[in-house]
Nucleic acid binder design. Structure first.
Length: 487
RNA sequence: GGCCCCGUCGUCUAGCGGCCUAGGACGCUGCCCUCUCACGGCAGUAGCGCGAGUUCGAAUCUCGUCGGGGCUACCA
């Protein structure tokens, strides 16, 4: 038997980081087993449906390299893969369950159900549907209050419903006894519980990997598999990603709950994948920096944690810096360019001169970045239009004020340099400013020059920066800082 | 409230009865490198929630307790 796994996002807004998390573990196991990974869109909630969401799911998962074998966009033997297009598929099973006495119609209004629930809570008794409609015909029910015109279909949960199952990650698990869950809504759409069971069976899903939040509804699914006479799939309930306050990760409390946030912030997909893998999983070797391939090769459900991990951005940033430094120079440039374009520092498309300037600076900025979004600040002094170059006033006040003589001395030294390279520049400046010249310490001598030429107190190494900037621009900036007019 | 899941440094984790005076990583602190900032190197900081029990021996097993989380929808 080949294993088949699926991830089933519901298109309701920005793709959730949990979708990527589930996809990663699903895929790791599927690839290890040579099985299939299916993307199914669970759009049965027309109230929360967002038409732009589905494409965003595709984009973000592909960005992460978590690609699927079958799905709405690429088809497959069990198409369609969108539940809204499978309404006719679910119908016969509802009828079958009704005929077998496992399900019944319910005409209760939402208002009555809500009042019932509130009353139950007030009386501190377990909440659950009171079966007002069970055993009644439509006519009989219409006599009573709280009657709705359109019926829903509910499961008739038996007293001996199975509340126990084996989980790949947790072992033997108990779950609560459900109440009479709705299977078919008044709008004709199935609920998740019906759709997931029918689709998982029809699509040959062998392993159901989902969040821990689903443990409590698993008995409903078990019942449906049994009633329909289908084999149960294997279940793996993943721990839930948490906010810092330990609650289930949410877009409201945590910007990192949105997958697109990571792209915006300049994270590398390989770093995010590694980090997500680290949350709840560890390689037998204990190595923490690993690729998807390594994770997949050694994958073992029993090594997945049961504790919901807090999403710690510090560690992700460290990992991101690590992957950034490992990038080949041309790849580093390729990934950095969009962020420079967004900052308006280079054109789109990039000119040959700009491309060359960035390439020349790679060595200097690559070890200094943790996020791609940091590139504009590090490279601004080099890429900015000379007319638009400005010295940060705070930095100028701190390091440049009263140091015109230092700048002037450096200017004179540098103007005499014929071979505009790091080493000759260093020699000329150090002769003029250090012990043999003005007698300054290296620290004191270079601070004003850094501000004068790069515009701030934090920058790549100075002589290298001079070399990259070129003779004309360097001299012009020194001249301006020394209070001299341009020639 | 009820039911269910979970509980090792601040965070991610290793550990599956003796190898643990609990190991690694991130963070933080200090030192080294150094023209700033990084990178890199070295050192340090900090944890088995609590209480019983089982056992020659418990972070590891059992029970209780406390704590956190999830579910309790015609949302997924």
């Amino acid at each position: 038997m080949t294993v088949r796994l699926r991830v089933a996002p519901s298109p309701t807004g920005d793709p959730h980081v949990g979708t990527a998390y589930m996809s990663l573990f699903n895929l790791a196991f599927a690839r290890q087993q040579g099985g299939a990974f299916v993307l199914r869109v669970e759009d049965t909630d027309r109230a929360r449906f967002d038409p732009t969401s589905e494409q965003q799911v595709y984009d973000t998962l592909r960005w992460l390299g978590l690609d699927w074998d079958e799905g709405p966009d690429r088809g497959g033997p069990f198409a369609p893969y969108r539940q809204s297009e499978r309404l006719d598929t679910y119908r016969p099973y509802v009828d079958q369950l009704m005929a077998a006495g496992h399900a019944y119609s319910c005409w209760c209004t939402p208002e009555r159900l809500q009042a019932m629930r509130e009353d139950q809570q007030k009386r501190k008794v377990p909440t659950g549907y009171d079966r007002r409609c069970y055993g009644l015909t439509r006519e009989q029910r219409a006599e009573l209050d709280g009657f709705a015109d359109v019926a829903v279909v509910r499961m008739l949960i038996p007293d001996d419903a199975p509340l126990h199952f084996t989980d790949l990650i947790r072992g033997e698990v108990n779950a609560p006894k459900p109440d009479d869950q709705v299977l078919l809504k008044a709008d004709g759409f199935p609920t998740y519980h019906l759709a997931v069971v029918v689709d998982d069976h029809l699509m040959g899903i062998t392993h159901v990997v989902r969040g821990e939040e689903w443990i409590s509804s698993t008995p409903k699914h078990l019942l449906l598999f049994d009633w329909l006479g289908w084999d149960r799939p294997a279940f793996a309930h993943m721990p839930l990603l948490r906010n810092t306050d330990k609650s289930k990760i949410s877009k409201r409390k945590n910007p990192a709950a949105r997958l697109t946030w990571f792209q915006e912030q300049g994270y590398l997909p390989e770093a995010l994948v590694n980090f997500l893998g680290l949350l709840g999983y560890s390689l037998p070797s204990q190595e923490e920096v690993f690729t998807f391939g390594q994770m997949s090769a050694s994958f073992d459900w029993t090594r997945v944690n049961t504790v919901g991990p807090v999403f710690d951005l510090d560690k992700l940033e460290w990992l991101n810096g690590h992957y950034l430094r490992e990038l080949a120079p041309e790849e580093f440039v390729r990934r950095t360019l969009p962020f420079l374009q967004r900052a308006g520092l280079v054109d789109d498309p990039v000119t040959a001169a700009q491309q060359a300037a960035v390439e020349a600076a790679v060595e200097l900025v690559q070890p200094r970045m943790k996020l791609l979004t940091e590139a504009p600040d590090l490279l601004r002094f080099l890429l900015v239009d000379e007319q638009a170059f400005v010295v940060d006033p705070v930095a100028a006040e701190k390091e440049l004020a009263g140091k015109q003589d230092v700048v002037a001395a450096a200017l004179a030294a540098v103007e005499a340099v014929q071979d505009w390279q790091t080493a000759p520049l260093q020699e000329a400046i150090e002769v003029a400013l250090l012990a043999d010249g003005l007698g300054l310490s290296r620290k004191k001598a270079l601070a004003p020059l850094r501000v004068a030429v790069t515009g701030g107190t934090v920058a790549p190494p100075l002589y290298e920066s001079f070399a990259l900037l070129g003779r004309d621009r360097t001299i012009a900036r020194l001249r301006a800082a020394a209070g001299l007019a341009a020639v």
